[in-house]
């Protein structure tokens, strides 16, 4: 495609690309810059620090805010990984059935997934809170993992079933004809084809769970289960009346790092995961 484009068009699209880069990275650059400001620079109303300092990072890792932040980080990582794992496993079976089998209720399952995906989270926080405090799940990991499934499961089912639909399942039969056993055919042919989809789905699910705020602030109350987004909103300065802008920025940067790493490593997969379903395989 590149070869057909005129130089002018090339420059135009390149400029467009540059604009996207600025669009996407500018706010991130700002929060990074803010997190590197020394306390004296925080209110200087400038984009860049005049004096670079790691003071804010010290604050959240070893200082006053570390107790709150580190436990929140541990909670977030653990809870999100488990929720992602469970939802991807469940979605894998469901998606396989939807993509490959004929059975009544297929549409019902997809519609349910859609309905759950668009469900107003806040609507179920109250009843969940009431139920959780009665059965002792309030402020625990499972108490967040279960509601997180309502966020991650529907998207997993949709993404995976779209993905599985594109897999040329005939190849498995072809492999069997060539003398491979069922298991071999499955492992050598289907697994490599399905794995990227499953993997991508897992990443997308993780992002969604990682992003949650409503459940995080409503269903937890201590560092036992409080995830990072909730902890960010609860950060404090050296007294109740002081706002820890620097510490919040530093923590915001830290929790963005895993996201950026995942994107850097798997950007092609993630985009494919979000788009492949609709593209002819």
């Amino acid at each position: 495609m590149d070869r057909q484009l005129s130089t002018r068009a090339k420059v135009g699209w390149a400029l467009g690309g540059l604009a996207i880069l600025v669009y996407a990275l500018f706010p991130v650059a700002w929060i990074v810059s803010l997190s590197l400001k020394a306390p004296s620079d925080l209110s200087n109303q400038q984009f860049l620090p005049t004096r670079f300092s790691l003071e804010n990072y010290r604050e959240i890792f070893t200082g006053n805010a570390s107790e709150l932040f580190l436990s929140a980080l541990r909670n977030s990582v653990g809870i999100c990984l488990i929720a992602t794992f469970i939802s991807v496993v469940l979605a894998m079976f469901a998606a396989y059935a939807i993509a490959r089998l004929e059975f009544p209720g297929k549409r019902l399952i997809l519609s349910t997934a859609l309905a759950v995906a668009i469900f107003p989270v806040i609507s179920i926080v109250t009843p969940l809170f009431n139920l959780w405090r009665q059965i002792g799940l309030y402020d625990t990991w499972p108490g967040l993992i279960i509601p997180y499934l309502s966020l991650t499961l529907p998207i997993s089912i949709w993404t995976l079933s779209a993905f599985f639909r594109e897999i040329p399942w005939e190849m498995e039969q072809a492999a069997q004809v060539d003398g491979a056993t069922n298991w071999q055919a499955f492992r050598k042919v289907i697994v490599p084809l399905a794995a990227p989809g499953v993997f991508t789905t897992a990443i997308i699910s993780f992002f969604i769970a990682w992003n949650d705020f409503v459940y995080g602030i409503s269903l937890t109350s201590t560092e036992r289960a409080r995830p990072v987004p909730a902890a960010l909103a609860f950060f404090t300065g050296s007294s109740q009346f002081e706002l820890p802008t620097g510490a919040i920025s530093a923590a915001a940067v830290i929790v963005t790092i895993p996201v950026v790493v995942l994107i850097l490593l798997f950007q092609r997969r993630i985009v494919a995961g979000l788009t492949n379903g609709a593209v002819k395989g």
Binding site: F85, L90, E172, F186
Partner: peptide
């Protein structure tokens, strides 16, 4: 045959699920 192979994989996945729940 495909559905059989999927069924063969299920126990492993369920074990993982249970492990995750236990871990949690």
């Amino acid at each position: 045959s495909q559905s059989r192979s999927v069924r063969a994989r299920r126990p492993r996945a369920w074990a993982g699920l249970v492990a995750a729940a236990l871990l949690a």
